[in-house]
Amino acid sequence: MIPKIKRRQMLDMLSSGLRVDGRGLEDLRPVEIKCRSVNNAEGSAEVRLGKTLAIAGVKTSIGTPFADTPDMGVLIVNAEFLPIASPSFEPGPPDENAIELARVIDRGLRRSEMIDLRQLCILPGKAVWELWVDIHALNHDGNLMDTSALAAVAALLTSEVPKAMVNEKGEVIVNKNEKQKLPIKCIPITITVAKIGDKLLVDPCLDEEEVADVFLTATFVDDKVCTIQKRGEKGLTEEETLKCLRVAQRKARELLKIVKEVIGYG
């Protein structure tokens, strides 16, 4: 429960364009990306947005493709909001918030075609690579969505998977000593804009999240939008919606630059 006085103070400050943590309305919190910290994973990334921390790990396995996409690898995104991250998280299977977050990130990865899933086919109709992206919240101080999305993207960017081939007998052979990068085509960037009163602000911290009426999360690739999710139990006008998206587009460009610098992609 956020005290009323804090809420009022936040609204007062926002009306003069100030945020509780001193940021401007369109400022992201400092971003930190730490890749490859998990030796046993094919790829991993810890991402910090201010005090919010999430870790994503990529594991692979060989499985059968879906019947309708026999020549494509499989991508699975899962998210867990564990009690370690916040006093408000409880143990148990993912709740609707964790499921929504995972599905929004999944759509962003899929629709941006970040990974060329066709290249993850080993034997059409029989064997393909399965990419498991598991996201765990470690510290929740707002905007787990963008933090987790960035962690997933960074983990995939730095993943190295073993080589697999098919021998003369038609069997799949995995060579664990020879590793290669994933077939990356682009980098999708996810940005959330929150609406508090009549103000739109980027990358809400926890206090702001608790006061916010509604959120718009958008994923951008090559300056186009490929996923949108409106969240929260209030509405937005058409004008506000478009304004949110334009702000998010600008911030996505900015964050993309940071990612490229840190990871050295492209």
Partner: peptide
């Protein structure tokens, strides 16, 4: 809410330029 002009559900699954999105809305 058509009489209030408030959008209460908005999801996108697929790639659009912002101008196209504006048209879609």
């Amino acid at each position: 809410m058509p009489n209030r002009g408030e959008i209460t559900l908005l999801q996108l699954d697929g790639v659009l330029r912002l101008e196209e999105l504006e048209k879609a809305i």
